[in-house]
Design a protein around this nucleic acid. Structure first.
Length: 587
RNA sequence: CGGGGUGUAGCUCAGCCUGGCUAGAGCGCUUGCUUUGGGAGCAAGAAGUCGGAGGUUCAAAUCCUCUCACCCCGACCA
């Protein structure tokens, strides 16, 4: 491509829109332009990158036996009613009506289409398994889209759905897909890791996320040297034995009220009572659909709202306001405790008490008295109060003991979720009657897996992981062009002829060249090539023209060498081949 | 949905508080000359319904009301 004919609207100044590096650079380097919130035009450079990533995804999925299909993006409501998600999915589902006033939605995911398709076509165990995928534009009317392609409402996604006769077969395919994902990201030049994840609203038995590690990632991952890695939403830590656990409850005196004026927080109270935070029971009050939840955790730990929500099966949980807390406890905020709470609060609903597992181990604890300016000591869980439920409610923090190995400590890292794998089981196969006849002629429901991979998000993640203060640093396999051919002095006919020949030769040899033939100063050409992140520059200037050689400069290191055209071609092809074999970790 | 903020030239922004002449700057764009291995210099020039509607006023980018769009902070997710 000749730069003089290319649509690459780079900006010298940073547009005000972008917050994260990938978003800023994509705007500034002319990769994307916003149309509406969370909706973007992909300009030529941006689209080339998305195509490169898509192609790697295709190659790796085809290689493990997946088949590409294309489903509609507009889907009749009946299908979603059949799975129950027309009601369940909520406002994120973009709903439309056609001229006959029939209801449709713009597909945010495609279980509702693929399942009846396979159900109608596959009838025998001999025809299973299948793994079908598409690369398609999806729409989710996100509450808050942000960060450019990282979280758009309209986005390009690869989604795959596998269908199996047995759970064992699904398990096997799940492993295959997991490995394929890791290959895909390695081939894209990204370092990634697979973590255990919450199943969320899609449901099913098991779920893993593939994360690209980056400072700006929206997800937090807890990991241990032993190989354990999990999204912090559901990460666990090894339970510790409480120091007082051995003491017999019978030896502990009765509950005693203590005056603690104005000391609402755990840190304030421990000083007065002469206790450690671990000996306090922290009482947090949450509003949920149809009631209140009282969550009890040790005073030195943090509550994980995701775990709380999952444990009680709530649609949502949100910290209760002061009025609700007063209504429940009869006290000011900071003096709530589990003893003597009402079971129902008028006008709000039922009260559920959930305690962390660690609470069951506690003896002689202190907690709020449900009376302003008072706490209670010598509290024994089980003796003085009985929670409705025990569950894991704690958030892990860096340094917590690993739940899988004996001496590991958890580290917390940030990552960008680029892929998500689910074992769906029969959640969708059942409502769509996706059945087959087994060897005994008996009708059996298929078991399913689904595997998402954000194409646009992968591009954004690549920039988050690979950039410097001058611009992007694309890994070669997903760069929009391999080489920026920079003709520094366009007025010199000899130089121009030389550059023209180099462009011809490289292009013919299969190297993707962006030929900067513009009437611009050298500085402008270097700056643009660096901003848009082309991995290699071939510089045509005074240096090589007389000797017939070229200067090849590597974008990420700045190293420059004089070499022949043939050597340039070889360098590019060898580097590409290297990535194709599984890729170096270029972090 | 709740909280905060911004809309002025292609981009970044000043002007608004305290209303007042042809609405400004830098970058970008056009033309010419010079320059040519790191975002050039000089000269000339084009370009804005001041987000929209209504109101107050002799007079509104500026004050008031409504509205729209976008951005940021929380809950959703590839």
């Amino acid at each position: 491509m000749r730069y003089s004919r290319a649509l690459i609207p780079t900006l010298r100044e940073m547009p005000s829109e972008g917050e994260v590096v990938s978003h800023q650079l994509m705007l500034r380097a002319g990769y994307i332009r916003q149309v509406a919130r969370g909706i973007y035009n992909y300009l030529p450079l941006g689209w080339r990158v998305l195509q490169k990533i898509s192609q790697i995804v295709r190659e790796e999925l085809d290689r493990v036996g997946c088949q590409e299909v294309q489903m509609p993006c507009v889907i009749p409501a009946e299908l979603w009613e059949q799975s129950g998600r027309w009601q369940a999915y909520g406002k994120e589902l973009l709903r439309l009506k056609d001229r006959h006033d029939r209801a449709y939605c713009f597909g945010p995911t495609h279980e509702e289409i693929i399942t009846p398709l396979v159900a109608s076509v596959v009838h025998s165990y001999k025809e299973l398994p299948h793994n079908l995928y598409q690369i398609q534009t999806k729409f989710r009317d996100e509450i808050r889209p942000r960060f450019g392609l990282m979280r758009g409402r309209e986005f390009l996604m690869k989604d795959a759905y596998s269908f199996h006769a047995t759970d064992a077969d699904l398990d096997r395919e799940y492993e295959v897909m997991c490995a394929a994902y890791q290959r895909i990201f390695a081939r894209c030049g990204l370092s990634s890791c697979v973590v255990e994840a919450a199943t969320g609203s899609i449901g099913g038995r098991s779920s893993h996320e593939v994360m690209v590690l980056a400072e700006t990632g929206e997800s937090e991952v807890a990991s241990c040297a032993c190989g354990y890695a999990a999204n912090v939403e559901m990460a666990e830590k090894r339970r510790k034995e409480t120091v007082t656990a051995a003491r017999d409850a019978a030896s502990i005196p009765a509950v005693r009220k203590v005056h603690t004026p104005g000391l609402g927080g755990v840190d304030d109270v421990v000083g007065l009572l002469g206790l450690t935070a671990a000996e306090m029971i922290k009482t947090l009050i949450y509003l949920r659909d149809g009631g209140l939840v009282v969550a009890l955790i040790p005073g030195d730990t943090l509550l994980n709202e995701h775990k709380l929500q999952t444990a009680i099966g709530a649609d949502f949980v949100t910290l209760a306001d002061e009025a609700a807390i007063r209504q429940l406890t009869g006290a000011a905020v900071g003096f709530a405790g589990p003893i003597g709470l009402p079971r129902v609060v008028e006008g709000i609903g039922a009260v559920t008490v959930v305690a962390d597992h660690a609470i069951a181990q506690m003896r002689d604890a202190a907690t709020g008295a449900n009376e302003t300016d008072y706490h209670v000591c010598h509290v024994v869980p089980g003796r003085d109060f009985v929670p409705d439920q025990y569950a894991d409610l704690q958030s892990v923090v860096a340094g917590d003991p690993c739940p899988r190995c004996s001496d590991g400590r958890l580290a917390i890292m940030r990552g960008i979720e680029v892929g998500h794998l689910f074992k769906l089981g029969t959640k969708y196969a059942k409502p769509f009657a996706a059945q087959f006849l087994d060897q005994d002629g008996k009708a059996v429901t298929m078991t399913m897996g689904c595997y998402g991979l954000g194409i646009g998000r992968t591009a954004a993640a690549a920039i988050e992981q690979h950039h410097d203060d001058r611009g992007m640093l694309w890994p070669l396999p997903i760069a929009p062009y391999h080489v920026a051919l920079l003709l520094l002095n366009g007025k010199n006919p000899e130089h121009r002829a030389y550059a023209d020949r180099a462009y011809e030769t490289l292009t013919t040899a299969g190297v993707e060249v962006l030929y900067d033939d513009r009437q611009e100063r050298a500085g402008v050409k270097f700056a643009d090539a660096e901003l848009i992140g082309i991995p290699y520059q071939v510089v045509i200037g005074g240096k090589g023209v007389e000797t017939g050689s070229l200067e090849l400069k590597e974008r990420c290191t700045g190293d420059a060498r004089m070499m022949s055209l043939q050597d340039v071609t070889t360098t590019i092809h060898e580097t590409l081949a290297h990535f194709r074999r599984g890729g170096p970790d270029v972090t």
